[in-house]
């Protein structure tokens, strides 16, 4: 009897451990380390900085389904001459020299299995602010995921704004 209890405990423990491992494996890092320590605050909020609009770099947000990550050519447009002595900018220049794009890591995404087809364009055209879905990225040094973009969260907003919550709007 004791042995049975013991083995039940062992089996339960194994299941829990496997569960934790799997859950961790499928969890997304909240603030992934980027190939270059790009600082959004410096570019957007800092008073003596360039105070760029989001769309300066994410230029396709109102045209395409993707906001798009700027091409390194865009970065080098300024950094050819600005802050060239900075270590991070030199890393950037090295990528540009090799004609490579830095391997940026994503902060927000949906798994392909979610079968969800989010598109930026209609959301921007409806007047949504970037921070509504992405948090105050402009005040962050390293971008961190602040908004938990679950389906319930999407639907809440759609309900509030009387937008269709038909499954087929996003899932297809």
């Amino acid at each position: 009897m004791k042995r049975l209890t013991k083995s039940v405990v062992v089996v339960c423990a194994v299941v829990v451990i496997i569960g934790i491992v799997l859950l961790r494996a499928s969890g997304k890092p909240e603030a992934p380390r980027q190939p270059i320590e790009f600082d959004h605050w410096q570019h957007v909020t800092k008073e003596e900085g360039p105070q760029l609009e989001c769309t300066f770099c994410h230029e396709n947000v109102d045209k395409s389904s993707h906001a798009t990550i700027p091409n390194i050519i865009t970065c080098m447009g300024c950094h050819e001459s600005i802050l060239t002595e900075s270590g991070e900018v030199q890393k950037l220049a090295a990528f540009a020299e090799r004609k490579e794009q830095p391997p940026w890591r994503r902060v927000y995404w949906h798994e392909p299995e979610a079968n969800v087809f989010y598109t930026h364009k209609p959301h921007i055209r409806a007047g949504l602010e970037c921070i509504t879905c992405h948090g105050k990225v402009g005040e962050m040094h390293r971008v961190r995921r602040e908004v938990d973009q679950t389906m319930g969260w999407c639907i809440d907003c759609h309900r509030t704004r009387s937008v269709s919550i038909d499954c087929y709007v996003c899932h297809r």
């Binding site: 299995e113 979610a114 079968n115 269709s164 038909d166 499954c167 087929y168 899932h171």
Partner: peptide, 11 residues
């Protein structure tokens, strides 16, 4: 759906 489509939600 509200557009009269017979939808299949895979997930």
């Amino acid at each position: 759906t509200d557009e009269g489509l017979n939808a299949q939600v895979y997930n």
